[in-house]
């Protein structure tokens, strides 16, 4: 596992930090420095609220290396309330709870571990919105 690659992605993975376009206001995730709408430079950091909804999903039974222990698990395309769609694992739910349009919130969880001696990779997952007062 490339430790340096994980480290570079930490900020966006731990707290959904993307970018916003000064010119047209579009929010970008993951950060790509250039606006997808107007092609202006977009380098100002923006922390997403973490709220969104399930756009589509699938359940993984045959997990790739590093994820075996967690199978079966669900992966979703989550449409963030600011617009971008991100791919992420769903957590804190049963498979039969899932539906398209389900309101979800971001949590920081263990994504994978590199064997018994390697690093633990943390990052965002999404779960059904748990509490009524859910954040702004």
């Amino acid at each position: 596992m490339e430790v340096s690659r994980h480290w570079r992605l930490q900020e966006q993975r731990y707290k959904l930090v993307g970018e916003t376009c000064d010119n047209c206001g579009v929010k970008l995730f993951p950060p790509r420095d250039v606006c997808l709408e107007c092609a202006a430079p977009a380098k100002e950091l923006y922390t997403f609220t973490g709220l969104g909804e399930v756009y589509s999903y699938t359940t993984i039974y045959d997990a790739p290396a590093g994820f075996e222990q967690q199978a079966p698990y669900s992966v979703a395309l989550v449409k963030l309330e600011e617009g971008p769609i991100v791919t992420a694992q769903l957590t804190d739910m049963d498979e039969d709870e899932m539906y398209i349009g389900m309101p979800v919130e971001m949590v920081t969880r263990k994504l994978r571990t590199d064997g018994d001696e390697g690093m633990i990779v943390y990052g965002y997952k999404f779960r059904p919105v748990q509490f009524e007062m859910a954040v702004k």
């Binding site: 731990y14 957590t91 804190d92 920081t108 263990k110 997952k125």
Partner: peptide, 20 residues
Amino acid sequence: NGLDEDVATMSVEAARNALL
């Protein structure tokens, strides 16, 4: 705790609540 939770992830959620 679930399979994807440990003291770090649980602390992060509690800390976010404290900050709210």
